[in-house]
């Protein structure tokens, strides 16, 4: 565990909690892509099946349980408790365009052709693109609430910090996982445009709105 890994995990946790609190406090999931949230729930579920097969540490197990629990709580908010506020008309990204290629790729490029390993690989690939429905929704409506941009910032920052973690681990532990690294790079690159807008607008007190 190095500082990049820990701050990455905490940043991920912050993102998830910010989103839950935003929905809870405003009693609304307006501007949130339910489709991205479904994809994140699928990501956590398929990746953390090893909760049933192996124990790594109390930290590892608790974080996995918290991530999964929060993902399903978010889904419950969006599709049940605050369903009336969910803006499905703008959440029109076709997720099958992500699921089919990602599913195919996880069968073709993986570390080991076994069910758990393929599901882990699938989750890594899917996570890298799971935010696209949310970014698509923002580009359609042309704006995002500031609290939603904080959520996106921490969610993007988390994988960027993991990239530094992987550089660290490569130099100091001889560890590298090409699948995670390439997917993590793709994931971080997808946020770059958003990071630019966040720094130049939101951090200067302006609302994130895109030119028409």
């Amino acid at each position: 565990m190095n500082v990049f890994r820990l701050t990455g995990d905490l940043s991920h946790l912050a993102a998830i909690i910010i989103l839950l609190l935003k929905i809870w406090k405003t009693r609304s999931c307006a501007g949130i892509s339910g489709k991205s949230q479904i994809l994140f729930a699928v990501v956590f579920t398929s990746r953390y099946l090893d909760l049933l097969t192996s124990f790594i540490s109390l930290y590892n197990t608790s974080m996995k349980v918290i991530y999964i629990g929060c993902a399903y709580a978010t889904l419950y908010f969006v599709y049940m408790k605050f369903k009336a506020t969910y803006d499905g008309n703008h959440d029109t990204f076709r997720v099958e365009f992500l699921l089919v290629p990602v599913g195919g790729l996880s069968f073709l490029v993986n570390h080991d052709f076994s069910p758990l390993e393929i599901l882990w690989t699938f989750s890594i690939y899917l996570e890298s693109v799971a935010i696209l429905p949310q970014l698509f929704m923002i580009s359609k409506t042309g704006e995002a609430e500031t609290i939603t941009t904080h959520y996106l910032f921490f969610l993007g920052l988390y994988r960027a910090l993991y990239l530094f973690n992987w550089i660290w681990r490569f130099y100091f532990e001889g560890f590298f996982d090409m699948i995670a690294i390439v997917a993590g790079l793709v994931q971080t690159i997808l946020y770059c445009d958003f990071f630019y807008l966040y720094i130049t607008k939101v951090l200067k007190g302006k609302k994130l709105s895109l030119p028409a």
């Binding site: 991920h12 090893d50 974080m63 993991y162 001889g174 996982d177 699948i179």
Partner: peptide, 10 residues
């Protein structure tokens, strides 16, 4: 030597 892919990350 290089160790690949233990699942200790989240």
């Amino acid at each position: 030597d290089i160790q690949i892919n233990p699942k200790d990350e989240l």
